[in-house]
Design a protein around this nucleic acid. Structure first.
Length: 572
DNA sequence: ACCTCCGCAGGTAAGCAGCTGCCGCTGCT
């Protein structure tokens, strides 16, 4: 069995933690942690790289020493340094670091002074009043740790973006009405429109911070106030979501918004530029010595370091800063660019609305076309269409198109790709359709090679147009199936096939990174709602968010085009 | 431990708030 990158990373994280508790050279600790992060983020397997004779020291942050340790680990499964460290520092202490309020220094104290090794020991010690007697442990920290223990399992997963909207709306409304508040916005990953959100970062412009915060902590959905000072406060909502509130003067609002929107990596990259220009950059503004040069708006902050405004969705340090420097930022797609939807279902299969209703609502959206893509017969969860029922739907659409004025209904289907790469409906009926979207709903557990070949074989069929929800993942619920997506993208490019960005908020499939990869390879994307009811047409919104995170412009997406162009783009 | 236009030397992102307890730890982007 070859070792996975995640396992290598886990070993190095563990080593870094244990050495951190021991109090080793912090830069050495950081080096191990960096290495873990790098390995975790690689798309290629380290074990494979070694087999291919690649030099691991080419990876950033991996020098001779680490390369050697990694190679030994991969080839022998042994990690002598970790083993040796574990004889001095019990590996279970690793767990204690996960509790909020506990870092390496406090864990060391707990272990050395009270022999606390695990969460149970810690709980008992707190109950017996031993912990508060230690230096650096006060009443508030103790309470925070106790809460951390109670909640440690509960809040591990990040919320889906869609599930945070109503909370953010309510919070924003509440804060806006507090006296002294001039502006408020939810920053962080919410503002970057990431598919999941860890916590909510509320940035407020206003004077009298203390009063604003005193009022804020009265918000009725708050279950627990974790901290509250005069400029910041952290609370937990009943839903378990953590909210950080930060109050700054109006002249610092843009700087604070920039800072708290992140990402962290984007901020670091910006600050490096600022430092090179002998400027100081923080959440209060851009400073030359003591003089504030910018801070009121984000635009101003970027301008001071010689950059154009960068949209929040791009702020991940994935090349946006270099692009900004060369004035090559993409003009990101917007909801307004969309001229139609290419994936939806009706009562003919698992949808909630009739064909006519779906068409009418799509027309109200201002769409020029709508593809009706009910499931084919193979799918067991729905009564899929067979040759006969699909033929009936085709006739029904022809009739409907005579009545509709502003929108054209495209005849289509979501056809199942079977295990051998064939479709579950014969070509004679499939070729009667305007387009076909193709997807996998079975045999998720094929080997990577088999799965890749299955999709490529399906794409060999000239009737294949769009690969729907290409990776099959469900956010927080199901991993993507194993296959070589890069190969599939190249195959799609060669054959003139399109990849879908499915806008269902729990799919968002392709994800942001794959959208960017597809764009770089030159594969076109269709952003589709996969609506199962009329109100789900609105999910297009989330698809656009993800597309923007994937650097997509109007021209990268086929359903931004008028029907005549769309037809050309679909032609193989 | 890694990286640096060299690397024997020196920096490693940066700065702030809150808590604790008057320096340092932790968390945050």
């Amino acid at each position: 069995m070859t070792i996975h990158n995640s396992e290598i990373a886990a070993a190095f994280y563990k080593l870094a933690n244990l050495l951190g508790i021991e109090g080793a050279n912090p830069f050495r600790v950081r080096a191990y942690r960096n290495a873990a992060r790098i390995i975790e983020g690689l798309t290629k397997s380290v074990a494979e790289l070694i087999t291919q004779g690649e030099n691991l020291t080419d990876l950033p942050g991996i020098g001779n020493d680490l390369a050697k340790k990694i190679t030994v680990l991969v080839e022998t499964g042994k990690f002598p340094l970790l083993k040796e460290t574990e004889t001095r520092i019990p590996p279970v202490l690793n767990e204690l670091l996960k509790i909020e309020g506990l870092g390496p220094a406090r864990v060391k104290l707990l272990y050395k002074k009270l022999k606390i090794k695990n969460i149970n020991d810690l709980k008992t010690a707190i109950e017996k009043g031993r912990v508060r007697k230690l230096a650096r442990f006060g009443e508030k920290i103790e309470k925070k740790i106790l809460q951390g223990i109670l909640h440690r399992e509960q809040y591990v997963t990040r919320a889906k973006l869609v599930d945070t909207i109503s909370t953010v709306t309510a919070l924003t409304h509440y804060i806006k009405n507090i006296k002294g508040v001039e502006k408020v916005e939810c920053a962080g990953s919410f503002r970057r429109h990431k598919e999941t959100v860890g916590d909510l970062d509320m940035v407020v412009a206003g004077s009298l911070g203390k009063k604003i915060i005193d009022h804020f902590i009265q918000f009725e959905e708050i279950s627990e106030v974790i901290s509250h000072g005069s400029t910041r406060s952290t609370v937990r909502l009943r839903s378990g979501m953590q909210v950080d509130l930060r109050v700054v003067p109006k002249k610092s609002y843009g700087a604070a918004l920039l800072y708290f929107t992140g990402s962290k990596d984007h901020n670091i990259a910006l600050r490096k530029i600022a430092v090179r220009k002998k400027l100081k950059m923080n959440e209060y503004g851009m400073f030359k010595y003591k003089k504030q040069l910018a801070g009121n708006t984000e635009e101003e902050m970027y301008r001071q370091i010689g950059l154009p405004y960068i949209e929040p969705e791009l702020r991940e340090n994935r090349g946006e800063i270099e692009a900004a420097q060369q004035d090559k930022l993409p003009k990101l797609i917007t909801l307004n660019d969309m001229r139609g939807d290419l994936h939806c279902h009706t009562t003919a299969t698992d949808g909630a609305a009739q064909l006519e209703t779906m068409a009418k609502i799509a027309e109200e959206y201002g769409y020029e076309y709508l593809a009706i893509t009910d499931h084919s017969k193979h799918l067991t969860i729905a009564h899929g269409l067979n040759k006969k029922t699909l033929w009936q739907q085709i006739k029904q659409i022809d009739k409907l198109n005579h009545q509709l004025k502003k929108i054209i209904i495209l005849k289509s289907i979501e056809v199942d790709i079977l295990e051998n790469g064939s479709f579950d409906l014969p070509p004679d009926i499939l070729k009667e359709l305007d387009l076909r979207i193709c997807s996998i709903h079975s045999n998720f557990h094929l080997s990577s090679e088999e799965q890749t070949n299955r999709i490529k074989r399906a794409m060999d069929n000239p009737l294949f147009n769009i690969l729907a929800h290409p990776t099959g993942r469900l956010i927080n619920r199901r991993e993507p199936y194993t296959f070589n997506i890069e190969q599939v993208m190249h195959a799609a490019k060669e054959r003139g096939c399109i990849l879908e960005l499915n806008a269902q908020p729990d799919r968002l499939d392709l994800n942001d990174l794959y959208c960017k990869a597809a764009k770089e390879i030159g594969v076109k994307i269709a952003i589709s709602s996969d609506a199962h009811s009329t109100n789900q047409f609105a999910y297009m919104h989330y698809g656009i968010f993800q597309a923007r995170r994937g650097w997509l412009t109007k021209n990268d997406v086929i359903n931004t085009q008028p029907l005549s162009n769309l037809k050309k783009l679909l032609k193989r």
